[in-house]
Design a protein around this nucleic acid. Structure first.
Lengths: 228, 228
DNA sequence: GGATTATTTTGCGAGATGGTACAAAAATCG
DNA sequence: CGATTTTTGTACCATCTCGCAAAATAATCC
C-alpha cells in the first residue's frame, strides 16, 4: 500500500509567515500523506480508461493507486467523484498536448497531421493495450444516464469542434482553402475523424491503418475544391 | 415473471411425421415456455444498449425479459453469452434496415441521406433516452478486453466501411464523382460520420444538430472536386 | 513532553452480484 | 393413469461491492 515514487522531498523550505494557502509548503499539520494525489489520480484514470466506470471496483482502484479505500475516499470522494476528477484530469492532459499545435503558426496540412499524431499517441498508449479516448468511452457509457457527466462530455465534444473550426477559419483567411469551403462542416469531419480513430483504436486496429484513415481524411479536408 | 405477449397461439398444426427439426410445430415435449426467446432477447438488447455490459445486472435482465434467472441462463447461457447474442441480434437488425438502401438504385446523395436517416432512427430510439450505436458502445467497453467480442466489433466496423466503399465506387462509375475521388477515403469519412453521430447521440445532442452534421458531411462527400 | 491535527490502517456490515441446485409445475407419450 | 421431458420458481451460495466507523500512527504546535 505504498506508491513507488516517494514524495520528492522537495518540500523543505520552512516558508515563514505561511498562509493557509499551498504556497510552497505551508507545513501541513497531521500525519503526512503516503501518496501523491496527482500520481494516484493518474493511476485511477488509467484504470477507468481501460475498463470503464462500472467494471472498475474500488478494490481495483485501491490496488492501482496504492491507497486503501478510506484514503481514496477521503482524497477524492466516492467512486463517481473520482471518475469525474479523472475525466477532468484527462481533459487537461489532452488539451495540454494539443494547445501548442493549435496555437503555433503552420500550414493547415501540417497542423492537422500533428493533431492526429498527438491524438493517436494518446489513444494507443497503455501497457495492457490501447485505451482510446476517454471522452468517447464516457459518452458510450455514463453519459446517457448521468446529466453532470453528460455535460462534461458535451463540453469536450464541442470544444474540439470549435478548435477545429477556428483552425479551418484561419486557413481560409490565409488562402489555404477556397472561398467555398465551410469551416464548420470541415471541423465536424475533423472531429468525426478523431472519433472514428478513437473507436477503432479500442478495437485494436493497428496504428498503420489508423494513420491511413487520417491521411485519407486530411486529403479530403485540405483538398476540398482544389482538384478536378 | 410473464411476458406481455403470449405465444401467439399460432402453434396448432399437429404436423405429423414431425422431424426433430423446428419445422412448424414438432410438438415439444415438456412444459411450454412462458416467454418468447426472440422478444426476450430484444429486451436484453435494449438494456445492454442503454447501460452497457458491466452496469447491467442479471436481475435487471431478468426483470426486463420477464424470465427468471435460471430460465435466462438456460436459454442464452451466461451473461457474456447473452451479451454476444444481443450484439448479433443488433447487427442483424441494423443490417436489415440498411441493406435495401444500399441495394436499390438511386443517386448518391439520396442514398447517403437515407442511410444516415436510418442510422439516426436507430441511435435515437429508446423510451428512456437515445441509446446510440451498440457497436460503438461495445467498442468503448468490452472490446479491449475480450478478443471474441473485439473480433465481432471489428467485423461490424469493416463491414460498414466496405458497404460505403462499394457505394462510392458505384457512384464513381456512374459519373457522380470525379475521377480523382478516392472511394476508400470517402468511405472512411462516411463511417466516421456514422461514428460521430453515434457518440453525440449518447450525449443527447438533439436530432436537428445531428442532421446538420450529416448534411455538412454529405455536402463534402458528394461535393469533392465539383466546386470552385 | 503533551495536545492537536491529519492521515493510514483494519475491519466491518448491509446489500448486490453472478451463478446454480432442487423441487414443483406443465406439457406430451404410452 | 403413470412415466418422461422440459421449463419454472424458490432459495441459496460464495463472492464482491461501496462506503464508513473506530482505532492506530505520524507529523506539527505549544
Amino acid at each position: 500500500m505504498v506508491q513507488k515514487s516517494k514524495p520528492p522531498a522537495a518540500a523543505n523550505q520552512p516558508e515563514r509567515r505561511g498562509e493557509p494557502e499551498r504556497r510552497g509548503q505551508p507545513k501541513r499539520r497531521g500525519r503526512p500523506r503516503a501518496y501523491e494525489p496527482d500520481i494516484a489520480l493518474g493511476k485511477a484514470l488509467d484504470l477507468f480508461r481501460k475498463q470503464g466506470f462500472a467494471a472498475t471496483s474500488l478494490d481495483d482502484l485501491s490496488a492501482a493507486t496504492g491507497m486503501n479505500r478510506p484514503s481514496l475516499y477521503g482524497a477524492f470522494g466516492d467512486k463517481r467523484e473520482l471518475y469525474i476528477k479523472s475525466y477532468q484530469r484527462y481533459r487537461e492532459e489532452a488539451a495540454a498536448s494539443m494547445v501548442e499545435i493549435f496555437r503555433q503558426e503552420m500550414p493547415l496540412r501540417q497542423r492537422l497531421e500533428r493533431i492526429y499524431a498527438a491524438a493517436l499517441d494518446i489513444y494507443l498508449s497503455g501497457d495492457t493495450g490501447p485505451r482510446g479516448c476517454f471522452t468517447v468511452v464516457t459518452a458510450a457509457s455514463e453519459a446517457v444516464g448521468d446529466p453532470e457527466i453528460r455535460a462534461m462530455v458535451l463540453d469536450g465534444l464541442t470544444g474540439l469542434d470549435k478548435a477545429f473550426a477556428s483552425c479551418f477559419r484561419r486557413a481560409k483567411e490565409k488562402g489555404e482553402l477556397p472561398e467555398s469551403a465551410d469551416p464548420v462542416a470541415l471541423a465536424q469531419i475533423a472531429s468525426a475523424t478523431i472519433h472514428t480513430i478513437a473507436i477503432r483504436s479500442r478495437a485494436r486496429v493497428p496504428r498503420k491503418e489508423l494513420e491511413a484513415i487520417v491521411k485519407g481524411a486530411i486529403d479530403v479536408m485540405v483538398g476540398v475544391g482544389t482538384r478536378a
